[in-house]
Design a protein around this nucleic acid. Sequence first.
DNA 1: GCAAGGTC
Length: 914
Amino acid sequence: MSGGGRAITVLNVAEKPSVAKSVATLLSRGQGIRVREGRSRYNKIFEFDYSIRGQHCRMLVTSVTGHLMELDFEDRFRKWHSCDPADLYAAPVRKFVPQDKLDIKRTLEEEARRCQWLVLWLDCDREGENIAFEVINICTVANRNLTIKRARFSALIEREIHDSVQNLIEPNQWFADAVDARQEIDLRIGASFTRFQTMLLRDAFVIDSAADDRNLVLSYGPCQFPTLGFVVERFWEIQSHEPEEFWTINCSHKSEEGIATFNWARGHLFDYTCAVIIYEMCVEEPSATVTRVRQQEKFKYPPHPLSTIELEKRASRYFRMSSEHTMKVAEELYQAGFISYPRTETDNFSARTDLHAIAQEQQGHPVWGSYAQRLLDPSSGLWRNPSNGGHDDKAHPPIHPTKFSGGETNWSQDHHRLYELVVRHFLACVSQPAIGAETTVEIDIAGEQFAATGRVIIAKNYLDVYRFESWGGSVIPTYVPGQQFIPTTLTLDSGVTRPPPLLSEADLLNCMDKAGIGTDATMHDHIKKLLDRFYATKDQNMRLSPTNLGEALVMGYDDMGYKLWKPNLRSMMEFDMRAVSEGAKTKAEVLETCLQQMKACFLDARSNKQKLMEAMAVFFERAARTARDEQHVVGEFVRLCGLCHQSNMVLKRNRDGNFMVGCLGFPQCRNVVWLPGSVSEAVVTANICNSCSPGPVYMIQFKFRRLEIPPNYSVDHLGCIGGCDDTLQQLTEICGTGSRMSARGGGPTPLSSSAQRSNSRQQACSNCRQLGHSSTDCPSVISGTRNSRSRRADQQDGGLSISCNTCGASCPLRTANTSNNKGRKFYSCQSEGCNFFVWEDSLQNGGGRHGANGGASNSGTRSNSLGGRGRGGRGANNAANGTFVSATGDPVTGRCYVCGDPSHFANVCPNRFT
DNA sequence: GCAAGGTC
């Protein structure tokens, strides 16, 4: 201890008890340290002697537990009916110490009175700076003569803490101001909108949530609403998805060395005819030539060091733990000293962290101890300094194990799992990446390109310890350029585009993280709030769907044209907060402009409250209504769902007011029939369709908007959604459906071929777009009188026609009106029962325009041979009885597409020209 | 009874 002068007493205050203990232990080096109780049982006081720049000090180190103060309206504005919610934008607010923090306040006051200095050891972020000023407020009231200093530190490491106390700085008012502004804006917006929408809607509708209606709070918050927005947006995306059938050619080759599966370079085509033409070319000349063999070394890298969000996402993915539960368990492991502080944004270890020492501790573990030993053995070459994830909160290191445990007796399964994850993650991120050798073989069949990839794992490295990740190896036979072979299978397979899945908790955390919604310590709270408020539910796969209540609220604000449910508001606020923390704007400036804007927005929203009411009315019964009206609210029964066979299909209006018939089993069952966008009224009648099965299918009385349908259609129409109704189908093609995304110009999203394979079981019919059957057994083809293709065309072109190659009847030239082929000309046979169909451009130039993935380079001869063969379009599919269409997407043996015989291809089929 | 942010 360096001497000099009289000793002063220094009050040191940290943000939490653990930091107070660390700071005291590091500064005192464990020498002469005394611990005594404060008034709060959690916040001890550590005492020892120290010297700051030659000044002899008696150090007292204690802590708060986060914020000491809260912000709220003055009492007279706290009762909900005490004022107009709009007044909350100007109502006086006050900061006060809540009841449960009074004992900490008292400790600070008492200790401050006998101190000369106050040193603030709060976390070095904006919130920490704000808490520092709360502490300053309390302490300076008790002792006006305090000298106030701030310690700046980025890690609880001995050298860092000593440096910090020898180089004390001033507290940063700008940082604290930014938080003050944030708090006030959050409070005023949150309270005003929450009171407004709760009082407006709670009594107007029968909201069938688990809470007692009287106690139900329909809260609004600048974090919880955008979080809900993400969930609803994904839900709408799924709801509006219209499946689209596509086609792909798969090729495999088996030899003594094994099997190689070749993927088509075009991926997939949405145009069946094009696909079948190309397929036929390949089948006619099936010999494959190896054009290129490429070998590359590939690495799979271990994860970055573990931050809170990554811990939550990974625990959700690997163990199906909710983020809220994960944080609870992590907090307990931290309290017991097994892992480091669990609320951290940092995913980069400081150069001063002794990573080897952390790994050394794990050497004795029965399961991963041997890996830790190998890692620490320099001759293994396994060690690698961890990568830098690029985030640093300047307060805490990445989450890592701090104490060895072989498992404690009082741990639950989740404690074991989480500790194991933290340890394995740490060991993984100081390990070498996995190394693989990848071989890509490209082949050419009749001008079409295919490629197969094989991978051999050369070294698993970090994957040996990180059992949560895997990297598949697949051996393919050896090929050399120029080599020729006949494929073992060559199949034309169908698939259907699929909507994205519901948001998982990990997905949602990702969205929030990217949009800056919440902090690492609060994101899980916002997700839990959605569940607590009955805005969303979570299924057993950790996937989130909005409830009717959640969807209605978002829909209501969206209909007003406000993006209050989008993350933009929070981003704007965050931008302003940054300006305050940098001194570019003052707190008062930001408060004034932001609150002025928000108040205008609030008043406007209130004047548009009808939109909220209408959105709620889509889902909920009006409180005054009788039970008899209930079916109008949930939807009127139309038929039993033909897909899931469990739930009813009901007539409903979607969020844009458009009509649809959807399965009540949604989202488990996604069967939906979108009705033409031109429908203005629709009522289910007692009439039962006598051609659609399984029945009964109740018919619907439609009224169409005159200006939105062609003149030759009637405004009133008694229709059936079972597939028998030509008028309805034509109007759907002409007017489009009322699906949300199509209304907004979005389109279906094609999925990758792997997704297609796993999902193709639930393919949609390409004729009528309904789920539950394929085009080969589509009721609209079976019961209809005309080729399904011509049903989808709406225009006949100037009397041009050709003779049908199949039956000789006349095939008029028409113009397609489908989304993929709008405006494209085709000939189709008029004769009943004949399916002949051919694109005009394929007759003229032997190919030309093709599906979504670009054109083919086939010759005129080949495409004419399609016509000459007399089996166009769907006819070929029917003739082959679905043989080359793999309904399951599973690999099927190559077979002749004409007769279905697996022993030969079509080019040698005896029935080919019959 | 309302927000979001600390933390026990």
